[in-house]
Design a protein around this nucleic acid. Structure first.
Length: 345
DNA sequence: ACAGCCACCCGCCATC
DNA sequence: TTGATGGCGGGTGGCT
């Protein structure tokens, strides 16, 4: 069965939860990304219709955002029950007790299968509602230890920019929320749509390295000691790579490679490589008509089976199903088929 | 679907 | 003394 948040209808209801003391950028980012798209937003796919219908939802009628902003036109909390996706921005005082009504509404939404997305310290709200119990989650690095201390049932992994745990997605500090929102669009609407939106946000479609970069590196540092090695790997994704050959390229031992790679990216070497290969396969599936077997080879997977396995793990669907969704036949409009027809993905 | 093999990951420890 | 490096080996998971 398709998950409850699958893009299945023209209108995919997104509710953004506004609470007193909400962090303005955490609120602004999802409003900009999911809200009405200016015509130039999707210049590469002019026929792509924004399937998201966004509204702000609050427990209080007129929640104050901060000293300078005041949010109007908010809907009552009960609207969360209608939302396919709920976005929870962070609050300036994340350790304050969370409104009980908000907790109950979020718990109910999670139970009925709504997709729930938190930005920055919005993870504290999800944790208070029990939504993160038994799940992997991230939050702003400054608050990660506190989240871990308060909610022992949450597997806090602050080295990541965002974590997609299926139904529940969490992002690291502030602007990492943009990375997560773009990731959601990529999953819902495909690579081209996400890249198109990213280009007009003047944001990289995919930032390399996790929050680890910002925790461990001094401000202004580059992408790390192994940046050249990662660039080389990206250029040679279709070739065979082993830890030994990569370590030789970086002129360090295998052990040091593993350690430094983890430190710089928050990922294991081969985990990173597989993710990059899946990204390449997605691009090729969307933008070419090459057979999947050829794409498997060109993205560096040893076999069709290997591509399939990793593709399903990373994207949640098979390569062929992905192509059917995001590469409509020539002559048809560029809107993903499942969005047009109302069929569940 | 299953089994054997092997590469990878990571904790531990010695060395520089 | 501290931090970075690299070797070793057990456990695990992916590939064939």
């Amino acid at each position: 069965m398709a998950p409850g948040w699958a893009i299945g209808t023209r209108e995919h209801a997104v509710a953004i939860l506004v609470q007193p003391g909400v962090v303005t950028v955490d609120l602004a980012v999802p409003l900009q990304v999911f809200g009405p798209w200016p015509r130039y937003f999707t210049v590469e796919q002019p026929d792509l219709v924004n399937p998201y219908a966004v509204e702000m939802v609050a427990a209080e009628p007129d929640p104050l955002v901060g000293g300078a902003l005041h949010v109007a036109d908010v809907q009552p909390l009960a609207r969360l029950a209608e939302a396919a996706t709920i976005v929870v921005p962070g609050l300036h005082a994340p350790l304050e007790p969370v409104n009980n009504e908000v907790c109950s509404a979020l718990a109910e939404a999670a139970a009925r299968g709504a997709r729930i997305v938190s930005i920055c310290v919005g993870a504290f709200v999800l944790a208070a509602a029990g939504v993160l119990d038994g799940r992997r989650a991230t939050t702003h690095w400054h608050w990660a230890d506190e989240l871990r201390r308060r909610y022992s049932r949450v597997d806090v992994q602050e080295q990541h920019l965002f974590i997609d745990d299926g139904q529940v997605l969490t992002s690291a500090g502030l602007l990492a929320g943009a990375d997560l929102c773009l990731h959601v669009i990529r999953n819902d609407l495909g690579d081209r749509a996400a890249n198109s939106v990213a280009r007009f946000l003047v944001s990289p479609p995919h930032r390399d390295g996790g929050q680890a970069l910002f925790i461990h590196s001094p401000a202004g540092s580059n992408g790390g000691f192994l940046e050249d090695t990662r660039a080389w790997l990206r250029q040679t994704l279709d070739e065979d790579h082993s830890l030994r050959s990569i370590a030789q390229h970086a002129r360090i031992s295998v052990r040091t490679l593993s350690r430094r790679f983890q430190l710089e990216t928050g990922e294991t070497v081969m985990g990173w490589l597989v993710r990059e290969r899946v990204l390449r396969a997605r691009e090729l599936l969307e933008n070419t008509d090459r057979p999947v077997a050829v794409i498997a080879q060109q993205s560096g997977f040893g076999s069709l089976e290997s591509l399939r396995t990793h593709f399903v793990q990373n994207v949640g669907t098979s390569p062929l199903a992905y192509r059917r969704t995001f590469r409509p036949p020539p002559g048809s409009r560029a809107l993903p088929r499942n969005v047009r027809s109302g069929a569940r993905a």
